[in-house]
Nucleic acid binder design. Structure first.
Lengths: 244, 244
DNA sequence: CCAAAAGTGTTGTTGATACACCCATGT
DNA sequence: ACATGGGTGTATCAACAACACTTTTGG
């Protein structure tokens, strides 16, 4: 799911401009890529293969072509790395400190994206040497102001996740209630009561129970659920609350 | 109060860069200026005195100097018009549609600001012919994509006002509970119960009751309150909920 | 005295919180 | 049998919504 044009009404956009024409100077795109691995919220960092920052870790970034919007540029850059074109993507804001890049005046538009690790498939890219998942507790020094962008995105994610069920984008299509709970615990940095979480989330009627159970677990298999976008849509129109 | 660097922790920034050096091409700033007049949420629109859009209504906008951040540019532009330098200001996002300005490729960074009408004092400005308050129900056609920016800011305001007590910036320093209630009713487009609103807002302990009453009203005078930034700070650290 | 807004009180209902407890399954 | 997580039930308390009611003040 791709959310671009509005805060509360994600829409699916898959237009990806790939014809490369003239680049625009002085403006770039940087993207914080989140995923969730069992118990940990993680971020994909890349080692840049170009420019003054060769070999250093940073966010996935890129430049803007004259005839594309920054939203589209972000989608394009993500597509080049992940081959995914149906991603939850939201703009954070413009980062514009005149000294954020020492050598020249460049402003950047920050994005963040939530993706399910299982769908993710890294693709060789000519601007990137290596890409690696880092736990958010374990982020190295980053180039430019990427630490600030990352911190901002984290704060934004923590707020956002309380108001809209965007967290689902980090999970597989079918998940258990406890997986979902662990996701919220990790993002919000709090502990939740299993029983109360269950009651609350089921009461929202946002989940559809499936006639399927977990496989290959060494304990009682849990029921699988999926997220119901129909019901989500109805709920957003009324406005709703995702506090935990 | 000026909020720039973070979502939830407004800080007061009064640095205003006024030395004019080289302008940056291809990037502009546009600002949605909100105020609240008795019962109506209003927006300040200006008639542009320069460029292709002479005489048309639009948001207050401007350009960026090489050595200032966009945040600072927004503060500077607002200062030129209102002589206010202690304003609640928050970046919305970058608007980047390649066709948003027909003649050339310009991206703009949108801001919104909340100010108390009584403090506001319009100043002649060389880029602006006239400035006028419009009720949000009564906005004319605007230049470029300013309608989109305005709609985005409204949606953002409606969300934001539910999570942080930013609405206070639209009121005089001393206000009555019913003024505050009317503000929420207008912004959120809902009706509130007087008694319940009272209980809820007082229960938050965010307001300080003053030993003062309304003057010159033809009915029982209401007690005046003010907003307590100390307590607000403590509350934001814990995270809190402003739903109505 | 009446209009208009300020301000208080009451009650039923809902939701949050903190538990204790039983169930199913693989080792 | 026991460890591990899945899943249910319940008692208590706080918050919310709807509404009736009283108070103060100017005209």
């Amino acid at each position: 799911m791709t959310s671009l044009s509005s805060e509360n009404n994600p829409e699916t956009t898959t237009i990806i401009t790939r014809g490369s024409k003239s680049l625009i100077d002085g403006i770039s795109i940087d993207c914080v890529i989140f995923s969730f691995d069992k118990k940990n919220l993680e971020v994909l960092l890349v080692q840049h293969a170009e420019g003054a920052s060769i070999g250093k870790w940073g966010l996935l970034g890129g430049n803007l072509y004259l005839e594309e919007s920054v939203d589209n540029a972000a989608l394009r850059i993500l597509y080049e790395l992940t081959s995914l074109d149906n991603i939850y993507l939201e703009q954070l804001k413009a980062f514009t400190d005149p000294d954020r890049v020492k050598s020249e005046r460049v402003i950047t538009v920050g994005y963040y994206t939530l993706l399910n690790r299982e769908d993710y498939n890294i693709q060789a890219s000519n601007s990137v040497i290596e890409a690696k998942w880092y736990k958010i507790k374990d982020i190295p020094d980053l180039i430019f102001d990427h630490t600030e962008i990352l911190n901002f995105s984290l704060m934004h994610l923590r707020n956002r996740v309380r108001q809209a069920p965007i967290g689902f984008n980090l999970l597989p299509e079918k998940f258990t209630l406890l997986q979902l709970m662990h996701l919220y615990e990790e993002i919000l940095g709090i502990e939740l009561d299993k029983s109360n979480f269950r009651r609350k989330i089921l009461h929202m009627k946002l989940l559809v129970g499936l006639d399927e159970k977990q496989q290959d677990v060494s304990h009682r298999a849990a029921k699988l659920y999926k997220f119901d976008p129909e019901i989500y849509k109805k709920l957003t129109e009324k406005g709703f609350n995702f506090e935990f």
